Simulated scan of single mutants.
Amino acid sequence: MVTIPSSCSALSCPTVGLSNGLNIPILGLGTSHDGGYSHEAVLYALQECGIRHIDTAKRYGCEEALGKAVADSAVPREELWLTTKLWPGDYGYQSAKQACRDSCARLGVDYLDLYLMHWPDCMVPGLSSREVRAETWRALEELYDEGLCRAIGVSNFLIRHLNELKDRGGVVPHVNQVEFHPFQQPLELVEYCREEDIVFEGYCPLAKGQALTHPAIMKLARKYGRSASQICVRWSIQNGVVTIPKSTKPDRIHENCQVFGFRLDDSDMAALGLLHDGRHVSWDPTHVE
């Protein structure tokens, strides 16, 4: 588990160690497509909130805009943790390598801190997903060896998909980024990742807003004098999960960053743990072989 201090700034935000010795900030800012990006919000997160971890993807269509925001923020590159993701349409050995270089160019950086395979299913005609995942992962391993990616991982992969990569005997993914919130708690997957020294990262910590009106969460918000979103983000982080809430509103980003000055009681952590009902608010990978 990670030790979480009482406050967070650009210099003190707690981190989680990866198997290769790097440290990823436990709190980041997520971005998305369909209006899920704001230049103003990214600048605010970097300059005013001390956020140093930004998550994006080619799929979101905002890498170039994000690169401009990072440049405008004047935050030194070495202080940042930038994650982007490889879309299945670019899976395959050569195309994955080119897609990574293209993402770097759009972001205006010489390297990525973390590069993820976005989804376990593949879009290469005539080849099985297993074959395509294997050759794509080989490309990511080489990008990692070349230093273009400081860490590599996957997103939305289940235990069977992770076992498949593990059985190849190469680099074990450093990170697995999966939907994680009070209603979707894949605890078996979380435990597997920890046993295999794969950092578990959670997206949609607010369940796309569905968690904010749940009576149990609202009750805890009143108890701690916090917002419902702060309760959810704090719960995720207190579980040791790297957490990347999305927002395009500076006030919401500020709110989501104020989660290091309090701690949920063990009994309240357990109560939130009972809210799991298996719902997905994003993609469900259970059908992907």
Rank of each mutant, 00 (worst) to 15 (best):
I4R: 13
I4C: 04
G17W: 03
N20I: 08
N20Y: 09
L27A: 01
G28F: 02
G30H: 01
S32P: 00
S32W: 14
H33P: 00
H33I: 09
D34G: 02
G36T: 00
G36H: 03
V42M: 01
V42D: 01
L43K: 13
L46G: 03
E48C: 10
E48T: 12
C49T: 03
H53P: 04
H53I: 11
I54V: 12
D55N: 14
K58E: 14
Y60Q: 04
G61M: 10
C62P: 03
E63C: 08
A69G: 06
V70M: 03
V75Q: 12
P76L: 04
E78N: 11
L80I: 07
W81Y: 08
W81E: 05
T83P: 07
K85P: 05
P88Y: 09
D90K: 12
D90C: 07
K97N: 01
C100F: 10
C100V: 10
A105N: 03
R106P: 02
D110Q: 12
Y111L: 06
D113G: 01
L114W: 03
L114Q: 12
L116K: 10
H118Y: 09
H118Q: 12
P120S: 04
D121S: 15
D121N: 15
C122S: 14
S128A: 00
E131V: 04
E131Q: 15
R133C: 10
T136A: 09
T136M: 14
L143N: 01
E146N: 13
E146V: 04
G147F: 08
C149I: 05
G153T: 10
V154T: 15
R160C: 08
R160D: 13
V171C: 03
V172T: 15
V172Q: 06
E188P: 00
E188I: 04
Y192D: 06
C193Q: 07
C193R: 01
C193N: 08
E196H: 15
D197M: 04
D197V: 08
I198P: 07
Y203Q: 06
G209A: 03
G209T: 00
Q210T: 14
Q210M: 08
A211L: 07
A211E: 05
T213Y: 12
H214T: 06
A216K: 12
A216V: 13
A216F: 00
K219H: 13
A221Q: 10
A221K: 06
R222L: 10
K223R: 11
G225M: 09
Q230Y: 02
V233A: 04
R234S: 15
S236K: 07
Q238Y: 06
S247W: 11
S247P: 10
T248S: 03
T248M: 02
R252P: 01
N256T: 04
N256D: 14
Q258F: 02
Q258A: 13
F260C: 05
F260E: 03
G261S: 12
D268V: 01
M269E: 07
R279W: 08
R279G: 11
R279C: 08
S282C: 14
D284C: 10
P285K: 07
H287K: 09
E289A: 15
